[in-house]
Design a protein around this nucleic acid. Structure first.
Lengths: 335, 335
DNA sequence: CCTCGATGTTGAAACGTTTTAACACCTGAG
DNA sequence: CTCAGGTGTTAAAACGTTTCAACATCGAGG
């Protein structure tokens, strides 16, 4: 079935040595044009495909980066991935995407596999920050959308505390004094930070901590947002918040959907702020106010930091971007 | 920096031969419990990570599948990918996602790379059907969401002609006689098939071909949908369609957005049908009528076909699923 | 005519695993 | 006491590349 045509067969077929074939593949300029043509013809004719395992084994380096993503179904991450890929391609690397789907186990397995594959570097938005440490046996790792707490790796993040503050400050300015924050689980750093920002906004405005009701979710998907919506509506009217800050646009979209289904109006009955400003936020039933992150740039710089990692005297850097509030109909001023 | 700890060092450290270490790694049951413990301890202590390149080179097989996706930013594909991954994991394989981003060149590069990596199999939703043929030098390939025209590979598809027919028949039943179809480029098989289905619906209803205006787009992204919306509104009122069938939910969402911006109402001024029924379709400004495909199952069966590929007497199969129309507000009956 | 440098080509030694066949050892049956 | 059979372990040969030092060949400069 597979005659397994290797560099040897090509060499023989072209009447040269394997070394020459290898040279044609890797340093074409060093071999005489005539022989080069002959070798290329042989390659073509035999349908030779270089065995990357062997190459990598000998050469020691690979040509791929990997990005282990928290949730491939979240457009935010695919946008970041796009940035990563663009930067990677410019440097001659390919990108493999792995989806941990917020599962610690999967995440660990992928990290293990990628190290075994000896990929040139790993980008990761971790479920479990400790997992990322696993990879410290040689493969460079850069944290994406999360700040590295120790100085052991680079990271590219966005100021999530500030983001939360922006969102909730906006709601307070619009006159809301009972605000819900939807998100979870709290084991996710982003959720914690954004909540902290929300708290800070309250403090700044002189509101008590109780002004914020935290609605815990099991994840950051649309379905969880819908669930939160139902719980929210179930609250006694006197205690029910008039605005909600969601840790995520997916949650916000779910919440929105649930509101409409239950006959409540956004923003009149409930103002909603999302986070990430994914493309669908603007196309939602009620266009969503959201905290925008520089997704593309996040990805690009992450890739660049990763590629700089094996420069001689590399120092781990922590880049932090600023988020920005994009106001839309879902928080139009209350009448 | 990298002391490059290999199986040799582990063996030495544990006082056994490399063969035994290899056995611990691959056939733990064959080695005596005492030595196994010793070896495992050594592995742990030295932080040994198996070199997959070497393993693969010698063992001949890898443990990963790859899915080359047309557009990682389209939730439809990430949902399919989810199905693929679930099936792959059950069989003990990991999945690498590659994004061709509708670019023939990228697609070709990824296919080349994946073959060089000797992945166990490739799933692909191709930009260019010919590219998929490239991989015919040994690596099994399964087409996803596209029917293989020749008998050379397996494929898993959904009946796109039927889907188009369902959508447009629904519009006709709602009283529309001037219908736009938004999509492109026509080099994409899906777009052609869905248009053909639309045509068939016209014929079935005894409408002339001119009842369908084809609005060509350069891609299947939200932005293209917005562009089409502007062109649509630019048409003279007498010729302007009263309904639009989009090749894609992303296009439909873009179209929707553009309508709202330009002060037209959906479905009153323009009814809209999308395709794929992605999660965001239901959460859109006007909940979107859409043609649903069994995304998850599509992915699962594709992976299963791929894994069956190296069974002794394998025959290429072509599985075809049926789409289903989901009616929502964007095509509510006209008054 | 000899030497030198430049230009192409090559033989052979890696790279770090898996795998096969052989080997050592032990136990229990004869 | 021997032998068959089982149980663990191992030496050594792959796997298909890249790379390095060495080797031809040739034209030019002395």
């Amino acid at each position: 079935m597979k005659p397994s045509v290797g560099i040897r067969e090509v060499a023989q077929h072209a009447g040269v040595s394997n070394a020459t074939v290898s040279n044609v593949l890797n340093r074409p300029d060093v071999v005489a044009p005539a022989t080069r043509q002959r070798v290329l013809a042989a390659i073509e004719e035999l349908g030779f495909v270089r065995n990357e395992s062997a190459r990598q084994l000998r050469a020691g380096r690979s040509r791929v980066l990997a990005y282990v993503v928290l949730d491939a179904a979240n457009p935010f991450f695919t946008d970041v991935a796009r940035g990563v890929e663009d930067a990677a391609r410019e440097a001659g690397f390919a990108l493999f995407l792995c989806n941990s789907a917020s599962d610690e186990g999967r995440e660990r397995e992928y990290l293990e596999l990628l190290q075994e594959q000896r990929v040139e570097g790993i980008l990761i938005t971790p479920v479990d920050a400790d997992n990322a440490r696993l990879a410290e046996r040689g493969t460079p790792v850069v944290l994406v959308d999360r700040e590295a707490t120790d100085g052991a790796r680079c990271s590219v993040a966005v100021d999530d505390v500030l983001g939360g503050e922006l969102a909730v400050t906006h709601l307070i300015e619009n006159g809301h004094t009972r605000i819900a924050m939807v998100g979870g689980p709290l084991s996710i750093q982003q959720v914690r930070d954004r909540r902290e920002g929300a708290m800070r906004a309250l403090t700044n405005a002189g509101l008590p901590e109780e002004a914020l009701t935290f609605l815990d979710t099991r994840g950051l998907q649309v379905a969880e947002g819908r669930g939160a919506g139902e719980r929210l509506v179930g609250l006694p009217a006197s205690r029910r918040p008039t605005a909600a800050f969601c840790a995520n646009d997916l949650l916000a979209l779910g919440l929105l959907q649930s509101m409409t289904q239950q006959g409540l109006r956004v923003p009149d009955d409930l103002a909603v702020v999302g986070y990430d400003d994914i493309e669908f936020a603007a196309a939602a039933a009620v266009p969503l106010t959201s905290v925008r992150q520089p997704r593309d740039q996040l990805g690009r710089t992450a890739a660049q930091l990763l590629l700089a990692e094996n420069e001689p005297d590399h120092e781990h850097r922590h880049v932090k971007f600023q988020p920005e509030l994009v106001v839309r109909a879902s928080t139009a001023i209350r009448r």
